[in-house]
């Protein structure tokens, strides 16, 4: 385990690399954008290989955590590039689209790929059901219950704690919370050891 604490003046900052995972078009780039504070853009730009962002979050107790966010391309053609980027990650957001059931079904595959690339280090992961704003009026959407079921399944199959949250990158609902909860989980894990 490596400790990355940046001590400057009175405050201490922890630096962690996190990754965003999930199928293409589930809204990973938008989640990151909204979290970074640039608002929602209607046109979706296909993430090329990876994208990068750094933001500090303050969690309870005034502890500052610096998140280095690598946004991995969901597009299958980038599989080779993708493998490289899992290295050294300390937490992951697993994103699916609540209006497309197949994106939820692929979640276990993403978890498998993640763990096989980081030597089965049990890093904190958060299951994120995105685009809940689009659920209204749609008939065959993925319900909260289905998300909770997936959370349970992942916990049992991979023997690790998984948290679940539903977000809307469009309205901003729960976006900051998702990143904050992840930061908190990583810090806790960091302090108690992997």
């Amino acid at each position: 385990m490596r400790i990355r604490g940046l001590e400057m003046g009175e405050s201490k900052v922890y630096l962690y690399k996190i990754v965003l995972l999930g199928d293409g078009m589930v809204g990973k780039t938008t989640l990151r954008r909204v979290f970074m504070g640039k608002g929602f853009r209607d046109t979706y730009i296909m993430t090329f290989g990876c994208d990068f962002a750094v933001k500090d979050v303050v969690i309870e107790g005034g502890i500052r955590v610096r998140l280095q966010i690598w946004d991995l391309a969901g597009q299958p053609s980038f599989e080779n590039i993708r493998k490289n980027y899992y290295k050294g990650s300390k937490g992951a957001l697993l994103v699916y689209d609540t209006t497309r059931r197949e994106t939820l079904k692929h979640i276990p595959l993403w978890v498998k790929e993640l763990f096989s690339n980081i030597k089965n280090r049990k890093i904190p992961i958060i299951l994120v059901g995105n685009k809940i704003d689009l659920r209204k009026g749609k008939e065959n959407y993925v319900s909260t219950e289905e998300g909770l079921k997936m959370q349970k399944e992942l916990q049992e199959n991979f023997k690790l704690k998984v948290l679940f949250i539903e977000t809307s990158a469009k309205t901003g609902e729960n976006v900051n919370a998702a990143f904050k909860i992840l930061a908190k989980e990583i810090l806790q894990k960091h302090k108690t050891g992997y």
Binding site: L6, M8, R33, M36, F52, A53, V54, R66, D71
Partner: peptide, 14 residues
């Protein structure tokens, strides 16, 4: 000595 303000750049490295 103080830490310089952290400048971040969306999708890029500052």
């Amino acid at each position: 000595f103080t830490s310089p303000p952290l400048i971040t750049s969306e999708g890029k490295i500052s």
